[in-house]
């Protein structure tokens, strides 16, 4: 706890996408699908990629679409987390907020 290192300031957003290390097999499909090199392969083969340039992430989600194991998700920057209101109850929720309701919309895309 009382140890510290000299490191550069954290970048913002800290982590534009989050990779689940339990699901990821290090195939780097997400890194290949990324147009900006936000995600780069881990130097150690088979390990999860590194989110190296989160400040370049366009949040297009192509990495999410490329992952065959559902191991990667978008993390909205905190200043981008929008609000919605449940009509019947008047409750207001924030995207990524502490009290987000469980998912109820599961309809697949049209087509």
């Amino acid at each position: 706890m009382n140890e510290a290192y000299l490191v550069p300031n954290p970048i913002a957003p800290n982590q534009s996408v989050c990779i689940d290390h339990d699901k990821c097999v290090g195939c780097n499909c997400c890194a290949n699908a990324c147009r900006t090199q936000t995600i780069m392969p881990n130097p150690e083969k088979g390990q999860p990629p590194i989110v190296i340039y989160p400040d370049e992430c366009w949040f297009c989600g192509c990495c999410v679409g490329a992952c065959k194991r559902e191991a990667i998700r978008i993390v909205y920057p905190i200043n981008q987390r929008v609000f919605f209101k449940r009509k019947t109850t008047g409750e207001v929720f924030r995207l990524g907020g502490p009290d987000s309701p469980p998912q109820t919309y599961f309809k697949p895309p049209v087509g």
Binding site: F59, C60, G61, C62, V64, G65, R73, I74, Y76, F84, K85, R86, K87, T88, F93, L95, G96, G97, S100, P101, P102, Q103, T104, Y105, F106, P109
Partner: peptide, 18 residues
């Protein structure tokens, strides 16, 4: 991904929510 899937995962439901 950013809207259709992500908002749904965070509980937004266009059948109920504004």
């Amino acid at each position: 991904v950013p809207i259709y899937e992500t908002l749904s995962k965070w509980g937004f439901d266009p059948d109920k929510d504004m």
